[in-house]
Deep mutational scan, measured.
Amino acid sequence: TEKQERAIEYIRRLGYSEEEARRILKKANGNPDLAKEIARRIG
């Protein structure tokens, strides 16, 4: 989804690889607090 793409872009800007960014997002899917934090940061 567009939100996922924005989140991946944001995480990659922090210096993670695409693969790492996707792994972090997968974790965020099972972790509402982390997901909220990422969403808050990407606006």
Rank of each mutant, 00 (worst) to 15 (best):
T1W: 13
T1A: 11
T1R: 10
T1F: 11
T1Q: 11
T1K: 12
E2H: 11
E2M: 10
E2S: 12
E2K: 11
E2Y: 07
K3H: 13
K3M: 14
K3E: 15
K3W: 09
K3P: 13
K3N: 13
K3I: 13
K3F: 10
Q4L: 12
Q4Y: 07
Q4M: 10
E5I: 11
E5K: 11
E5P: 03
R6L: 14
R6P: 06
R6S: 12
R6M: 14
R6Q: 15
R6V: 09
R6N: 12
A7Q: 02
A7D: 03
A7E: 03
A7R: 01
A7V: 11
A7S: 05
A7K: 02
I8L: 12
I8S: 02
I8D: 02
I8E: 03
I8Q: 03
I8N: 02
I8F: 06
E9W: 10
E9N: 09
E9H: 08
E9D: 11
E9F: 07
E9L: 11
Y10C: 06
Y10Q: 06
Y10L: 05
I11Y: 02
I11E: 00
I11T: 00
I11P: 00
I11K: 00
R12N: 04
R12Y: 05
R12K: 14
R12M: 14
R12H: 05
R12I: 15
R12A: 05
R12T: 11
R13H: 13
R13K: 14
R13A: 15
R13Q: 14
R13P: 00
R13Y: 11
R13N: 14
L14D: 01
L14C: 05
L14I: 06
L14E: 02
L14S: 02
G15W: 01
G15L: 01
G15N: 03
G15M: 01
G15D: 01
G15V: 01
G15S: 02
G15E: 01
Y16I: 07
Y16H: 06
Y16G: 00
Y16C: 04
Y16F: 15
Y16L: 07
Y16E: 00
Y16Q: 02
Y16T: 01
S17W: 02
S17D: 06
S17E: 05
S17K: 04
S17Y: 02
S17G: 06
S17M: 04
E18R: 07
E18S: 07
E18V: 08
E18P: 06
E19R: 10
E19Q: 12
E19Y: 12
E19S: 11
E19P: 08
E19K: 10
E20K: 06
E20P: 00
E20D: 12
E20T: 11
E20N: 07
E20C: 13
E20Y: 08
E20S: 09
E20H: 09
A21Y: 01
A21M: 04
A21V: 05
A21T: 05
A21C: 02
A21H: 00
A21I: 07
A21G: 03
R22P: 00
R22E: 06
R22Q: 08
R22M: 09
R22G: 04
R22F: 10
R23G: 12
R23L: 14
R23S: 13
R23M: 14
R23F: 13
I24G: 00
I24C: 05
I24R: 00
I24Y: 04
L25A: 01
L25S: 01
L25V: 04
L25D: 00
L25Y: 04
L25E: 00
L25H: 01
L25T: 01
L25C: 04
L25M: 13
K26F: 10
K26M: 12
K26Y: 10
K26T: 10
K26A: 13
K26H: 11
K26Q: 12
K27L: 15
K27C: 10
K27R: 13
A28Q: 02
A28E: 01
A28D: 00
A28G: 03
N29A: 09
N29Y: 07
N29E: 08
N29M: 10
N29R: 10
N29H: 13
G30L: 05
G30F: 10
G30S: 05
N31T: 02
N31Q: 06
N31P: 00
N31R: 06
N31F: 04
N31D: 15
P32V: 11
P32Y: 06
P32F: 08
P32H: 05
P32D: 05
P32W: 06
P32G: 07
P32T: 09
P32A: 13
D33W: 10
D33H: 08
D33L: 07
L34E: 07
L34I: 10
L34A: 07
L34N: 04
L34W: 07
L34F: 06
L34H: 06
A35N: 01
A35M: 04
A35G: 02
A35E: 02
A35V: 03
A35S: 03
A35P: 01
A35H: 01
A35F: 03
A35D: 01
K36V: 15
K36D: 03
K36A: 07
K36P: 01
K36Y: 10
K36I: 15
K36L: 14
K36T: 06
E37F: 07
E37C: 10
E37K: 11
E37L: 09
E37S: 09
E37I: 09
E37P: 00
E37V: 08
I38L: 11
I38E: 05
I38Y: 07
I38N: 04
I38W: 05
I38S: 03
I38V: 06
A39N: 01
A39M: 03
A39Y: 01
A39C: 09
A39H: 02
A39D: 02
A39I: 05
R40P: 02
R40T: 11
R40H: 15
R40V: 12
R40G: 08
R41H: 12
R41F: 09
R41S: 13
R41I: 12
R41N: 14
R41M: 13
I42D: 14
I42Q: 15
I42R: 06
I42F: 14
I42G: 15
I42E: 15
I42N: 15
G43W: 15
G43Q: 15
G43A: 15
G43I: 15
